[in-house]
Write a protein that binds this DNA or RNA. Sequence first.
DNA 1: TTTAATTTTGTAATGATTACAATTGAGCAT
DNA 2: ATGCTCAATTGTAATCATTACAAAATTAAA
Lengths: 156, 156
Amino acid sequence: MITIEHIKKKLIEKGIKPTYPRVRIYQVLSDNGGHLTADFIFKEIRKDIPTASRTTVYNTLSSFVEVGLVDEILITGTEARYEIKRRNHHHFLCKKCGGIFDIDIKCPLAQGEYSRVRGHLIQEIHGYFKGICKDCLKKAELEREEHEKDDREVSE
Amino acid sequence: MITIEHIKKKLIEKGIKPTYPRVRIYQVLSDNGGHLTADFIFKEIRKDIPTASRTTVYNTLSSFVEVGLVDEILITGTEARYEIKRRNHHHFLCKKCGGIFDIDIKCPLAQGEYSRVRGHLIQEIHGYFKGICKDCLKKAELEREEHEKDDREVSE
DNA sequence: TTTAATTTTGTAATGATTACAATTGAGCAT
DNA sequence: ATGCTCAATTGTAATCATTACAAAATTAAA
């Protein structure tokens, strides 16, 4: 639980004026774990600031990204997701349920931060995985067993 | 230079009927290097098939992705990009010029294909980098030198 | 309190992608 | 050939996240 004062200090450090909407957006990012959609954040701050607009959310998020407070995660091709910058982890998208999970791995590339490859200056390293999550695997397993039981009953 | 017959064989192998538009889309992907936009492909096949529709391009690309012939690359948050599946390489997006470059690296994670992490079944591994490309770095370097020269002239 | 600068708001536009119904085309039996 | 059936393609309209932009509100300074 980060305090309002702590958030304000963080924003000022990065040259961002800590207005109420901005502080709230940071707080929502901080309180709700990772990979939040702009829409989720918008609805969340609407509870406090009924007049808040989507534009403010987008503007604030992009300035947070610009100064390096926040990461923009692009996995699905549709909605971008945002989270407070945090090193050494990637994301996993379940192709079945659409859920996004954190994968804490120490990628050797991500360690040697901001180096060069073939003359290009590397500033950001993004990685993500797609597959079937634990829960969906379990669910599929159970369904398979059900079907086998059905088959046996039919053939009897 | 892949032959039409070779493309047809590939599509049939994957259970895709090798219609002319589909073969042409594969050929465009094959002849023009990696990370092509749907729009580029659309314009390219329009040269041969003046009646071709965007929908066909999208449908075809998504079936190619589905059967694993093609990878969908999501970097910019806007346009998706497509390329024929190829292992052990990632992409680099230049934040200045918007160019996308191949980065051939042997990521240790990408080697142990389709394993599991924390119970989740990993089917795809995506990685990309952002930064400033070689050319833009050189350009910035030259501009900096220009400015230094200007400063000297002014102070003289 | 007035002024100026910044931030926020709200609406309209954008642009890639998808939905869907109508048309076309390929393969096959008559 | 002709008609039939199914799949592929087309074209238009809708969707939906995001951006542009001008007006209103807020803040900080004078």
